[in-house]
Design a protein around this nucleic acid. Sequence first.
DNA 1: CATTTAAAAGACGATCGGTCTATAAAATGC
DNA 2: GCATTTTATAGACCGATCGTCTTTTAAATG
Lengths: 204, 204
Amino acid sequence: MTSMVQQRRRGRPPKSNDGYSLTRQRLIREGVAALTEKGFVASGLEELLTRAQVPKGSFYYYFSSKEAFGLVLIDAYAAYFNAKLDRWLKEEKTEPVERLQNFIGDACQGMERHGFRRGCLVGNLGQELVALPDEYRTALRDVMRGWEERLTACLLLVDPIRACDWARFFWTGWEGAVLRARLERSAAPLRDFEDGFIRLILAP
Amino acid sequence: MTSMVQQRRRGRPPKSNDGYSLTRQRLIREGVAALTEKGFVASGLEELLTRAQVPKGSFYYYFSSKEAFGLVLIDAYAAYFNAKLDRWLKEEKTEPVERLQNFIGDACQGMERHGFRRGCLVGNLGQELVALPDEYRTALRDVMRGWEERLTACLLLVDPIRACDWARFFWTGWEGAVLRARLERSAAPLRDFEDGFIRLILAP
DNA sequence: CATTTAAAAGACGATCGGTCTATAAAATGC
DNA sequence: GCATTTTATAGACCGATCGTCTTTTAAATG
């Protein structure tokens, strides 16, 4: 529980850096979870700070603003998601299409584990772009481009000519499927999308 | 401009009802626009009231809460969108697939007209469900079911067996395509999705 | 040991959402 | 004709939240 969290003492921290970046990491971890579940605007700072057990002064010590914080969270989420994609899409003992299906299976389980409350941080922020600085648009685009590249590399083994179009199509529709899965509280929309997509790329 | 708006006088309004539902309708119109652009939480009441030139007391006279207001907006949006779908998908002089393509073309123009700032009210609220009452989930599901039924009816003419699956697939992915179009500020994602979808349903 | 540095801490002021009372003018009924 | 009711406008008020900013604290440094 929260009583297990090692609370940071006031004053300058001792010289050892290793144990003392916990505050910032805790903020990032809680921030990613909040943005994945609620998006940016609905993620109030007070609640986040309470969850992370970090005083507001410390938050603003580490991040110049809530918006700057959000950009850091996008990077953190991208790193996490890219690692996940690499794990599944670069599995050389598996057929390319099956690699994608394994990723989808893992995604279904992940959403189910969180009661379909968590979606995709990128999708959430994408809906809120009007209220966010333009840097967010660039950051989110880059993340999705990275996803497309990874899937393209995987699907090149299926069809070198269409891989790129397929990858773009997949990630475009995938955001809709994640949104729908949260709405329905079911993995069925993800599976529906998978079925349709597989049928598309296996069509003559 | 705003100076053209007929401002409502204090006191009980005259008996003629026709000209005097303008306040409520104005709120609904501005509300739908705000939710389509920013979603629920980011649509502050103060800004909305300023835009509609309606005092806060009047807002709470017509709607018991911001959340009740949102439900009314969902209905209003559904009515508007269903009318649009009917216009395009029931056009009997046009081939079924072309009807869908005409709807997509219209949607592309609509988004472009608004500088890709407006997306889909249902998609926006779908991302915010965690922060909204459960009635919203039901309402949004019903709206999307209605869309699926309309497209199914249209695609029955193409393939009676798969029409329903296709319609579900389409609307699931469509939300992702709208989201991506806003992110990219371009109709290309909508077109990409259209291409893939048409290829899917025309495959043997 | 005085000063600097690094991080925690929380008070503060502005803004906003929701509540709620007052106001105003037409309708209604006696 | 007038008191009362009805209908909608109007905005003050309060509590919560966000971002700002100064103070506090403790270790490092010279």
